[in-house]
Simulated assay, not measured.
Amino acid sequence: MDFFTTALLLLVGAGGGVAFANVLRKRSGQTDARRESTLLLERIEKVFKVVMAEGYFSEIYNYQDQKKILYVLNDPKKAMIIAKSKVLVGFDFAKVRFRTDENGAKILAIESFPEPEVLSIDTDYKFYDIQAGYLNHFHSEDYTKILDDAKQAMNERALQSDLPKIANNQIQYMMYQLAGSMGWQLQLPDAEQRQLDALKAQTERELDSTKRLPPGQ
């Protein structure tokens, strides 16, 4: 058998092997899908934000868009989204304005304290009942807008809940305890000081009632 005959047989055999491997791959359901991602770091910022309350929310968001064909016939598209979110509420301490006593006394006076804000929303979205119109189809920007609107609705719902109040109470009491542990006296603006005094009184009552409970309860 000469060289060319041998080479021809090798090529035919290799081709048959590749074809057979492709058949087996298709039958086994394997694909050659490739995924690539590129991470771009835009900037790093130093922040002093403290999480004081955490809440979990579920939201059913209905999206509907009406489009008229030839200004006569309606061609709606709609979708239902179920969003489950973990919301963290806290404070940006860069916005706190304070001063110390001019006479050297250990008094920390808070002149201005920021409102609690949503620091992050971690949301899991699931789309259900997606119905496109005959000509009114869904596009990538539609899904982006739906997710943005759903996240904004979750942000507003979190701010309307008890999370901001809980975060306020937490931060005031934490600062009070921290200042006291270092021998400092904390002074808050009038409204916040009244809230802190009420919280301290409530805490003392709860501790007192706990001490009065019989052993084992």
Rank of each mutant, 00 (worst) to 15 (best):
Ala33Ile: 09
Arg157Cys: 06
Ala19Thr: 14
Leu135Pro: 02
Phe93Ala: 07
Leu11Asn: 06
Arg35Leu: 15
Ala167Leu: 06
Tyr71Trp: 14
Pro76Arg: 05
Phe98Lys: 09
Asp129Arg: 08
Leu8Arg: 04
Ala83Gln: 12
Val23Ser: 05
Asp92Ser: 03
Leu199His: 00
Pro214Met: 07
Ala7Trp: 00
Gln177Phe: 04
Thr5Ile: 09
Ala179Tyr: 00
Ala201Gln: 09
Gln172Cys: 10
Tyr173Asp: 07
Phe57Leu: 11
Met182Val: 10
Leu147Phe: 01
Asp101His: 13
Gly133Lys: 13
Asp122Gln: 12
Asp124Gly: 06
Gly15Cys: 14
Glu192Gln: 14
Ser181Glu: 06
Ile110Lys: 04
Ser112Asn: 11
Lys126Pro: 03
Ala198Gly: 04
Arg25Ile: 08
Val18His: 06
Asn22Pro: 02
Phe127Leu: 08
Thr203Tyr: 12
Lys151Phe: 07
Ala7Arg: 01
Thr203Pro: 08
Ser85His: 04
Leu207Cys: 01
Gly133Trp: 06
Gln185Pro: 00
Met174Asn: 03
Thr6Ile: 08
Asn103Ile: 13
Glu102Met: 09
Arg97Cys: 13
Asn169Thr: 14
Glu36Lys: 13
Thr123Gln: 01
Glu204Gly: 09
Lys67Cys: 06
Leu178Tyr: 03
Val50Phe: 05
Ala105Glu: 13
Tyr61His: 07
Glu204Ser: 11
Ala179Glu: 01
Ala14Arg: 03
Asn169Ser: 14
Val87Asn: 00
Gln30Thr: 15
Leu88Gly: 03
Gln64Phe: 13
Gln187Pro: 02
Pro189Gly: 06
Lys95Gln: 13
Lys78Phe: 15
Arg205Ser: 12
Pro114Val: 12
Ala7Gly: 03
Gln187Ile: 15
Val72Gly: 04
Lys67Ile: 08
Asn103Glu: 10
Phe98Gln: 09
Glu206Val: 07
Gly183His: 02
Leu24Gln: 03
Ala19Asn: 14
Asn136Lys: 05
Trp184Glu: 05
Lys77Tyr: 04
Leu70Lys: 14
Gly90Ile: 14
Gly216Trp: 11
Phe98His: 08
Leu196Gln: 02
Lys95Tyr: 03
Lys106Asp: 11
Ala158Pro: 00
Thr144Ser: 10
Ala132Asp: 05
Ala21Glu: 09
Thr6His: 10
Leu135Phe: 14
Arg194Lys: 09
Asp162Gln: 11
Gln195Tyr: 01
Leu188Lys: 00
Lys151Arg: 12
Gln152Trp: 02
Lys77Trp: 02
Ile81Gln: 00
Ala33Val: 12
Glu141Arg: 05
Met174His: 03
Glu141Thr: 12
Phe98Ala: 12
Thr100Ala: 11
Val50Leu: 08
Glu45Ala: 15
Ala191His: 01
Val50Pro: 00
Asp122Glu: 10
Ser85Asp: 10
Ile121Thr: 04
His139Glu: 13
Pro214Gly: 11
Pro114Thr: 11
Glu42Leu: 11
Glu111Gly: 05
Ala21Met: 13
Glu156Gly: 07
Ile82Cys: 03
Ser120Lys: 13
Lys106Tyr: 06
Gln185Ile: 10
